[in-house]
Amino acid sequence: MINFQYTRASDVSDAVRQIAADPTAKFIAGGTNLLDLMKEDVEHPTRLIDITRLPLTKVEETATGGLRIGALVPNSDLAWHAAITQRYPVLASAILAGASAQLRNMASTGGNLLQRTRCFYFYDTATPCNKRELGSGCSAIKGINRINAILGTSDACIATHPSDMCVALAVLEARIHVAGPGGERIVPFADFHRLPGETPEQDTNLDANEIVTAVELPAEGFARNYTYLKIRDRLSYAFALVSVAVGLEMDGTTIRQARFALGGVAHKPWRDPSAEAALNGQVASPENFRRAADLALRDAKGFEHNAFKIELARRTIVRALTQASRGTPQSQSNKKIA
């Protein structure tokens, strides 16, 4: 942990100005991930710009029937917000599947998008890690890789994105509002996080001096047929081995439109348009679900300790699609798998 300057940003443009002026500065909101990483000597910002006083704490209706969630809305508030629980229950469910009540109270919406991988080697400065120090090598590929990725990996990195909330946002096709020196722009959720490729040090496509200001949800919330199913090594307070968020538009027993995303398996929440398309217009049946799961995992590649995730993901997709199609979503308090 290093000494750092602490400043406050008065508004969004001030925040952008401050970060642009200091290349080693970082924003801090809830700090639930950044402070840990600083203590572990993984992150060394010389300046923390406190953004918690920015006016980004509202959940507002949009003109197109969706919601605009301020980047500083705490995860807890969002999970229990009436508009979320009623219209976007998959998001509420995913948030409640993650972390602990205390962490959710501190963690912000924008920060959740930006949390960093839990790969053991990223956290341990005694070992090489390309994400921490590009060019030092990936220790996980031949190391303890039980929690690592099976999809979209590269020779440089097999880390996963640890968020639960983001898996639901992927299904909802949220749009991320960001502000930077060049003004504001909107990033489709699928383009927000990256695959590691040769540049695993970059988790997202956010530019260095940009700040997340809001997460916008489109009108469609899949409030009827949804689920968030998280499989982990204990029944709570653990990161996902595999998780699946599902949103379905059903017409009787026929699927009009299907979306599903996987967590815990890739460097970003994983969607596969071809697997989803294979469900559209089809009857909700185990065979169809399995076909979609097979498609989604056709390029999956396991490592020494995590090859099981391929079959686990396949089964979890089938189960989650079953839950969603039946309108019996997974409870996050009763740990029996629905």
Binding site: R118, F120, Y121, D124, A126, T127, S139, K142, G143, I144, R146, I147, D233, R234, L235, S236, Y237, A238, K335
Partner: peptide
């Protein structure tokens, strides 16, 4: 969990060294 390449414990924290929680 020990990485035998490094001879080093990799889950040296109680987030990744799992013990039962209330659930």
């Amino acid at each position: 969990l020990i990485d035998h390449n490094f001879g080093r414990i990799m889950n040296a924290n109680i987030a990744e060294y799992h013990v039962p929680v209330n659930a």
